[in-house]
Design a protein around this nucleic acid. Structure first.
Lengths: 229, 229
DNA sequence: TCTGTCCGGTGGTCAGACCAATTTGGTGGT
DNA sequence: ACCACCAAATTGGTCTGACCACCGGACAGA
């Protein structure tokens, strides 16, 4: 038994702690908003050093499962999208041909996402989408590229699918594409064409027309695809 | 200058270190296989404590960008899929209705992935797919569920797209689904039906028939979808 | 009741120590 | 000259304790 244990690859302490919290989250024993015991307390409970606890909490943070606030504590945060997006985007960034790959995935995902949004969007979500396009219009009228609204529109569409996995992946892809989108929207006429096709998508979503929404998104992606990809 | 820095929201030290390494990787100054200086050395260079360096390296590890080996050092590892998959899978796991969401994403992604594989698979990749199905047949004949080969087949299909983002996302989704797949394949007749539809997909991929591959994958997903989802 | 201050608790960082694992360099033998 | 072995050096992993900045709650005063 003892010998057998030593032939197994040594597991790092902080990884065990992370797994422990994963189980608690998965079982529902910890949920969004719950506060973890203090680092010092966890170190005592787990009979480990505070350093190991900190390293575990770093992992949970990076996994988008927790947020630490100095002076306040560490909280389960399973609805915090920013860190997950940054993390997912960084994993995509690690490869070559990042833009090409991200764009291709976008082509695969966003048309059916638009279709799902057409089936599932609540009136509030439709209103939100409209609001974003009004912002985009204002930005373009003011001489800006409207890139933030452009990104927000795609994110809101994914949110309207009510599918957590899709939301996360789309957000990561959008994060990766944000830079090239800024350049792309500098081209003459592109902003207005982007906005026009956004509006077409919104009409189809509002009308509850999945096929129309899908086709409108296909068209939109053709309109905005950067040249030379 | 000094005063100005202090009015900016305090940034955590280890995050600055992570960003530094992100830049180095992005610029190509660090690439797969390169060894980082020792933690103690990095602490000295950056004029920070070793704890901060460690927390930064934890982050890089979790981002799938580095691997630490006791006694040897820390190495850039941008081609290490295992940690990225585990990480992505854990972010998906954090939500409710995990299986439902993962399955829905699978429905959106895997048919077009099969189509891309039909366009892009090399002869070696096709042979690999065939090999996996032969393994699956052997496992089923031996009375096992064949779940490992089932998963491997989907992963190999994604790999045949030559799109790094797709590979990562599909691998994460497969990781999440692996548990339910094991149960699903316990149902009578399901293994053979799964294998049969895999073989149909492979034929279409081998024939370079994207539409046929896509339809075969649609059919396959309908065959294997767990009841009650 | 509201506002301001203080204090205790929290996370963030530092420094140093020790242990386990790996690598490197030196020595001896062939 | 080459190889094997061993000890020392180096590395990451964990621990301990200290100090600092921040936050939230409690309490006192207006």
């Amino acid at each position: 038994m003892q010998t057998q244990i030593q032939t197994v690859k040594r597991r790092r302490l902080h990884e065990d702690i992370v797994q422990h919290f994963h189980s608690l989250i998965r079982e529902g024993a910890l949920k969004h908003g719950d506060r973890l015991p203090a680092e010092r307390e966890l170190a005592e409970q787990f009979q480990v050093s505070r350093s190991s606890v900190r390293e575990a909490i770093r992992s949970l943070e990076l996994q988008g499962l927790a947020v630490s606030k100095p002076g306040a504590g560490t909280f389960i945060s399973t609805e915090n999208l920013d860190s997950v997006v940054a993390l997912l985007a960084s994993t995509f960034n690690a490869g070559a041909d990042v833009l090409r790959d991200a764009f291709e995935m976008r082509h695969l995902l966003e048309p059916p996402i638009a279709a799902l949004a057409a089936q599932r969007a609540t009136p509030e979500e439709v209103a939100r989408l409209r609001e974003i396009l009004e912002d985009q219009q204002r930005q373009i009228d003011a001489g800006d590229t409207g890139v933030e609204s452009d990104t927000a529109f795609h994110f809101a569409l994914a949110a309207a699918t009510h599918n957590a996995a899709l939301i996360k992946v789309v957000s990561a892809v959008e994060d990766v594409l944000q830079r090239s989108r800024g350049q792309s929207l500098e081209e003459p006429g592109r902003r207005q064409r982007s906005l026009a096709s956004h509006q077409e998508i919104l009409q189809r979503v509002q009308a509850g027309d999945p096929q129309g929404a899908q086709q409108a998104m296909d068209h939109h992606l053709a309109v905005v695809e950067p040249s030379g990809l």
